[in-house]
């Protein structure tokens, strides 16, 4: 019984941490431009499809990973250049960006369906098979989840260094507070915006590659359900706290796993929607949004 619970916590937390990564995509943009990209989740789907495409060309794990993430970063840059900036320049408001990104979400879904077909594809076992287990004491953990943990841990360290030990974090904070003031302080707002777009799409793209072994490589990766879980994680972190967002995602994943275990799997997705609504109504500033000294 205890083992069941522990195992559920471990697997739930690893899926949840990937939701947190999706949420980070929201947070990075919110920090710098105070906009939400509703096509945030499309990057996850694109990441997964790019990865299997490169992997199918026998490039191996590492190269496929690097190439797909690089392309996703380029896409982030394009997003800024061809969607965000033109709307801003022509006096479009926030709603215009919302609708444009919503349409973008539809666009990518249909592009993938046209290019790859609507049927889900298996993901190569680069993270190990979900049936391979490692035993720690009496608990068996799937290798898959362990590897996901590994990747996320590396990513978190990287993000920590980027935000806290380099100028990037500082310019993010400055741009978040006041664009004009940041520009006056000599911070290159354009560069910061580009960077936040690239970081946002990259982190979600990586999340897509991590989620693919669990969800298969399917259009579901670019659909509303996982997207909303990302939003829910971000909202738990108050849209501004990256670590709170990951923690929020982890809690969401664990909660979801337990509800599947004890209630019913049909209403699994309702959990994240309810969490989202409740947090927004009760404490819109976020639950895991402690006042961090940095960011």
């Amino acid at each position: 019984m205890l083992q069941d619970i522990l195992q559920n916590i471990i697997s739930g937390a690893s899926i949840g941490a990937t939701y947190g990564l999706v949420g980070l995509g929201v947070v990075f943009l919110w920090l710098t431009i105070s906009r939400i990209n509703f096509a945030n989740i499309s990057s996850a789907m694109l990441g997964a499809y790019l990865f299997i495409t490169f992997y199918g060309m026998n490039l191996g794990f590492f190269l496929s990973f690097v190439f797909s993430v690089a392309l996703i970063a380029l896409y982030g840059l394009g997003l800024r250049q061809f969607i965000y900036e033109p709307i801003r320049k022509r006096g479009g408001g926030r709603l215009e960006f919302v609708v444009a990104t919503l349409m973008l979400c539809t666009f990518w879904l249909n592009l993938i369906i046209v290019a790859y077909g609507a049927l889900p594809r298996p993901f190569p076992p680069v993270f190990g098979k979900s049936t391979d287990f490692v035993s720690i004491g009496s608990i068996k953990i799937s290798v898959l989840y362990l590897n996901i943990y590994f990747v996320i841990a590396i990513l978190m360290v990287l993000i920590y260094i980027l935000l806290n030990k380099t100028l990037i974090g500082k310019s993010f904070r400055a741009a978040a507070q006041n664009r004009e003031a940041a520009a006056l302080m000599g911070i290159n707002v354009k560069f910061t915006t580009s960077l936040s777009f690239m970081m946002a799409t990259c982190v979600v793209g990586i999340a897509g590659i991590l989620l693919a072994p669990i969800y298969f490589v399917s259009v579901e990766l670019g659909g509303g359900a996982i997207g909303v879980k990302g939003f829910a994680s971000a909202v738990l972190g108050g849209l501004t706290n990256p670590y709170g967002t990951i923690l929020g995602g982890v809690c969401l994943g664990v909660l979801e796993n337990f509800s599947t275990l004890y209630i019913s799997s049909t209403y699994k997705d309702v959990i994240s929607f309810s969490v989202l609504i409740l947090v927004l109504i009760i404490k819109p500033s976020g639950i895991f949004n402690w006042k961090s000294k940095r960011v």
Binding site: I83, P86, I87, R90, G91, G92, G93, E96, V99, A100, M103, L104, T106, F107, N110, L111, V114
Partner: peptide, 19 residues
Amino acid sequence: NYYLMVTSIIVIVIIIFMP
């Protein structure tokens, strides 16, 4: 095959150029 893709592109273009 592409009508939904094209529709979304047209919508985005309209939003950008005719707010």
